[in-house]
Amino acid sequence: MATKKTKNARAAEPLPKNAVRNCSDRPMPSGNPYKPAVATVTEVIHETAAIKTLRVVLDDPAVMAAFHYEPGQVGQLSVFGVGESTFVINSPPSQKKYLQFSVMQAGEVTAAIHRLTTGDKVGVRAPLGNFFPWRDWRGKNIFFVGGGIGIAPLRVIMLHLLERMADYGKISLLYGARSPRDMAYSYEIEGWLHNHDLDCTLCIDAPFEGWRHKVGLIPNVLLNLAPDPTNCIAVLCGPPIMIKFTLQALEKLGFLPENIVTTLEKRMKCGIGICGRCNIGGRYICIDGPVFTLKQLQALPQEL
């Protein structure tokens, strides 16, 4: 017979102030946080040579119906037998039929995800992490800057805000990719360009035959666009090198660090703040992030 133990003494220990994360407003999975919900791939979209978009539906209809998340939250997508990787849920929360993930092929898991077809089973641990503080942005102009696959997290927050256009000022998007062929969501971009609520600018790194939009690196195009930093939030996501130079450009334009928001990624395993690899100093991208303002990042050790 096992001894029964009282653990009250353990729970009573006061925690230091900064350990207490205010996560009360955050949707979180319940039950065993390591156990994925089984889901079925309902659609696979070839975005570019390297990017595929997966739409998945959780197998349990009750769980799917109750599934709630905030824009910017991520999920651990697993291919059974291969492993898990973290991706942002890039379908807007208003869209209840499926969860959408866009995946660029890079390693073992992403390669396996790229091999998935309609009807295949995957695991989903979601929603994890924090989200874009869109409620605090009401009444402000929002300027999105996305590079390459970095458009995925921007898509969800942008669509979310466009649904609430009345609450926000001007919404702009600068989306850059290496070439037109590397642009994800090409089937939606035409709609974005014609959307009167959205000021959409596209750019590619080098001239390309038939390209009607801007040519140049994102930071340079951004400097030319020169968005007004007053009452404006800049939200950016992209590869590290683009982030680095875009931050410089935004600062040059006069954006304050607290008004620059980005979403980070690192190698993750548990996704719940324990396994120890996605930390920047004492903060963990999986639970304290992935969304940070530049101001928050500046207060952390520089280890990205």
Binding site: Y34, S78, G81, E84, C270, C275, G276, R277
Partner: peptide, 27 residues
């Protein structure tokens, strides 16, 4: 020290099924 890794072993959905393992990892 408690850092860990999570890996999948076994043949996925094959006859034997698969396992998701947690093992010690080294920072």
């Amino acid at each position: 020290c408690y850092c860990f890794n999570i890996t999948d072993e076994g043949d996925g959905f094959g006859v034997h099924g698969g396992r998701r393992l947690r093992s010690w990892d080294n920072c």
